[in-house]
Design a protein around this nucleic acid. Structure first.
Lengths: 144, 144
DNA sequence: ATTGATAATTAAAATCATTCTCATTTAGAC
DNA sequence: GTCTAAATGAGAATGATTTTAATTATCAAT
């Protein structure tokens, strides 16, 4: 299956931390990677539940944390208060353009913006760690 | 006092909506404007409590919503999950540079970034509404 | 295959920020 | 001052996330 590479990343991360590769973690990873990005913990939970009805919410949250920690996932806290997760493997860094009507996500990159951000950090004497840029608007379809 | 202009804005907003200008709302506005920006609902609550011990949490939240609605305030949902509020009157649009060690906020503006964002909206056929840019790093003092 | 040590899981309870409910009080138009 | 809609306060409710505690699974060493 196409997920060997990603599984390897999780396995290696777990091994390095003396953690274990359980069936639940594998199942969550599978679903997470197979689906389109940007799902909530709850959405993921409901999908995984179909296969593992006994799997609990806490396991979803714990596993999502691991997936983010090993670099396979990213947590997005959006302006409306919801938290969504996207898988990152094979993606470059990107920001998001989000439709406020239909919720559509578009991944965007603008190298010039990245460079200007670095300049802002420097100008204010900050050591840069990360940034968050979300652009909210109305997409072509929703404009009618 | 220096707040007449801001009070006027709130009063006008309330009048236009057939809402009322209560003592609690005035007191919350006073504290909100007098303090340095970027406080949590809870911080604001505790400060206002000193003068109005009977004032409840719900009133803080209700009033903060009004202050944002009339343009005097802005709600910031940060990456660590906390929500902070800043007062806006007399401020231009700005983004934030935030120290992940001490929590210091610096307000920054970079017109070139703003322009590039507009271009991104256009390129993807979006009608622009707003954006959120937060830059996280470590400030001069915290670097030692 | 069994054991033992450690970590993971489940289910339920706890937490925390925020919102709602509803009985009581207040603002402000008349 | 009277009246009505709106605001308030107190506490309960909500929803997302985390913790707890008991049970189960993993894996390396026998």
């Amino acid at each position: 299956m196409a997920l060997n590479q990603e599984k390897r990343i999780l396995e290696d991360y777990l091994a390095a931390k003396d953690l274990k590769y359980s069936r639940q973690r594998e199942e969550i990873l599978d679903v997470f990677l197979s689906l389109n990005r940007h799902l909530t913990a709850n959405e993921l939970y409901r999908i995984v539940q179909k296969k593992y009805p006994r799997l609990g919410f806490a396991t979803i949250y714990r596993t999502l944390k691991l997936l983010c920690a090993c670099g396979l996932g990213r947590e997005l806290k959006l302006e409306n208060g919801t938290t969504r997760y996207e898988h990152l493997y094979g993606h470059r860094h990107h920001d998001h353009l989000i439709c406020t009507k239909c919720g559509r996500f578009v991944e965007v990159v603008e190298p010039d913006i990245e460079r200007l951000q670095e300049k802002l950090f420097k100008r204010h004497g900050f050591y840069p760690q990360r940034h968050r840029l979300e652009l909210y608007g109305i997409c072509r379809n929703c404009k009618k």
